[in-house]
Nucleic acid binder design. Structure first.
Length: 562
RNA sequence: GACCGGUUCGUCUAGGGGUUAGGACACCGCCCUUUCACGGCGGCAACACGGGUUCAAAUCCCGUACCGGUUACCA
């Protein structure tokens, strides 16, 4: 029998990080064993389910690239079948009508109320004390025929226990005495969760139920329904929960956007990286390795590798630097820095486009750069990128700023310090636009402290112009007839070094000042490569520009010795 | 309260009778470097507690503590 698993979220909000991991594990297991990964929307709670939420969940799944097999099942479509099942159990005497009037839902916290009631009962409640449990069939039928409202409850036997072998938690047993006669059908005829789940899992021929540990005790109730129906239950595998840093529940209400999948998509995370991170929360392949491709994950995934203890999703509220789990950020940076450039480029393109920084010249001529390049084309393309990535291999000593080759090489250069895709349009903005911001901290540290730079840097620009000025950057290979050198790292270094000596200052002072003016930020790749990448013309322009200087505080009187 | 589950560095985890208890993130230091959030090297840091079994316990058993889940005519 082939394996069929399902991810069954209830559409009462966006895709929660815990649900996303449940979906991932189901997906990985299905793919590992060559089974089917199905999706069922558990929308039986009409009051709370929304279409928008369903869409958001689907969006999240799509972003994570967890494609489901077969049609989506909407649980609400099966309500009639659920009711029929309940009726069947009723006629077989395995369930009974409960004519107890429906209790008014308390207006305070529902969960709190339940716990309170349970505490009051001192845990000695007799689960078989429902007065309608044993009324005669005749009386029950008569009252029902009379229009009296009733809920349908499963008739749990007086003595015995339910048991099942959980693939993660091992043998689970529970005395009947601890399980109430659960409600199958509400008095308004609405099927309840446990009934609906069992019916649908049977209908969908689910073989393995992989879900959160919060359902571990529910499972006993479901086993009871399977037994009443005379059907062998599927294999259950419960997952440890993902908790907040205080080991409490991780919820939208308390923790906000950090728990939503769309947050990560919008924050510039790569799905592959986030998937990788999620996979390692509650599962491990028992090896000293952190980076796993999807194929590796599928290959190595097993139910045996799932943990039994909850995992903390570590983040610090109100700390922008640690707004989400450090390891997730690191993982994303790792992907951005080390994944094949050809795979990264489409994501960078999308980011630059949405920031209005994209230019069509960045597209390789005659080819559309998309995420799905066929293999032969992709190979040719990759070797081209390899060339661009390896400065030494480039025939030209200067790349034309704004060209495709320049673009690819720039991305290869700047990605080494980036954490998210957003960095390409934020920190990296100065590479693609003249309209970029200056980080006040960078100005304070690299410009304000050295007042002489205000005259030095424009002077450096003059020097650049004199040294490199009439080199034809548009056809840099043609060098004959020109008296000046090409604007390359090596030549730039010579010029800047002698300039520094003339001014009797440290190289760092000049370089850092220039970096701030040229890029607006205090960090980045080697400054020589930044000069080269920004290009001669723009470098000169920016060194002369007074934009950043305008932000210098008026009381700055520090000398260059500072 | 009752029932069920869990407990290895701050966090994610490896290890399941004999290990200097390993890795990753974070943090710190050094190196590289003009800067840096890149890179390299190194450091700090953990078996919840108490009993037992055993020549030997992080590992097996019992208890305690703590944490979590469930206890709905929610899902």
């Amino acid at each position: 029998m082939s394996v069929r698993v399902r991810f069954a979220p209830s559409p009462t909000g966006y895709l929660h990080i815990g649900s996303a991991r449940t979906a991932l594990f189901n997906y990985l297991y299905a793919k590992h064993v060559g089974g089917k990964f199905l999706l069922r929307i558990e929308d039986t709670d009409l009051a709370r389910s929304t279409e928008e939420s369903t869409r958001s969940i689907l969006d999240g799944m799509k972003w994570l690239e967890l494609e489901h097999d077969e049609e989506i099942v909407f649980q609400s479509d099966n309500a009639d079948k659920h009711r029929a099942t309940a009726r069947k159990l009723l006629t077989e005497g395995k369930a009974y009508r409960d004519f107890t009037p429906k209790a008014e839902p308390s207006d305070q916290n529902v969960k709190e109320g339940i716990a309170e009631r349970a505490r009051a009962a001192q845990g000695v409640k007799n689960m078989r004390d429902n007065p309608f449990r044993d009324i005669s069939e005749v009386e029950s039928d008569a009252r029902a025929a009379n229009g009296e409202p009733f809920a349908v409850r499963l008739k749990v036997a007086e003595t015995g226990k339910t048991s099942f072998e959980d693939a993660v938690y091992g043998l689970q047993e529970r005395s009947y005495a601890d399980t109430e006669d659960l409600v199958l059908l509400r008095s308004d005829g609405h099927p309840l969760y446990n009934l609906a789940v069992v019916c649908d899992d049977i209908e969908m021929r689910i073989t393995h139920v992989i879900r959160g540990q919060d359902h571990l005790t529910n499972t006993h109730k479901q086993v009871l329904i399977y037994e009443a129906l005379g059907i062998t239950p599927p294999i259950f595998a419960h997952l440890p929960l993902i908790m907040a840093p205080n080991k409490g529940k991780l919820s939208k209400r308390k923790h906000g956007e950090v728990v939503s999948m769309t947050t990560y998509r919008d924050a510039g995370f790569l799905a592959a990286a986030f998937r990788n991170f999620l996979a390692l929360l509650g599962w491990s392949a028992s090896e000293e390795k952190e980076i796993y491709s999807l194929t590796e994950l599928i290959d190595k995934f097993s139910l045996e590798g799932i943990h039994r203890s909850n995992a903390v999703f570590n983040f610090t509220e109100n700390d922008p630097r640690k707004w989400t789990d450090d390891k997730a950020i690191w993982m994303n940076a790792e992907y951005i820095r080390t994944m094949p450039l050809a795979d990264l480029l489409p994501f960078v393109k999308a980011e630059l486009k949405s920031a209005k920084l994209w230019r069509d010249e960045y597209e390789p001529e005659g080819r559309a750069l998309t995420a799905t390049i066929d293999s032969t084309e992709s190979q040719a393309f990759e070797s081209e990128i390899e060339i661009a990535e390896r400065p030494a291999a480039i025939a030209l000593d200067v790349l034309e700023v704004g060209s495709y080759d320049w673009y690819v090489r720039t991305i290869a250069l700047i990605r080494t310090r980036f954490f998210t895709l957003k960095d390409f349009s934020a920190q990296g903005r100065a590479y693609f636009s003249e309209d970029y911001d200056f980080d006040p901290a960078a100005i304070a540290k690299n410009l304000n402290k050295f007042a002489d730079l205000k005259t030095w840097l424009p002077e450096l620009a003059d020097r650049f112009e004199a040294e490199f000025g009439d080199a034809d950057v548009s056809s840099p290979t043609v060098r004959e007839g020109f008296t000046t050198k090409p604007f390359t790292e090596e030549n730039i270094e010579t010029v800047v070094k002698s300039f520094t000596e003339e001014k009797a200052t440290k190289l760092g002072v000049i370089m850092n000042g220039a970096r701030t003016l040229l890029t607006g930020v205090a960090v980045g790749p080697s400054m020589l490569s930044v000069f080269e990448t920004i290009g001669m013309e723009r470098s000169i322009l920016r060194l002369r520009s007074g934009i950043a200087w305008a932000e210098i505080l008026p009381d700055t009187t520090l000398s260059s010795h500072g």
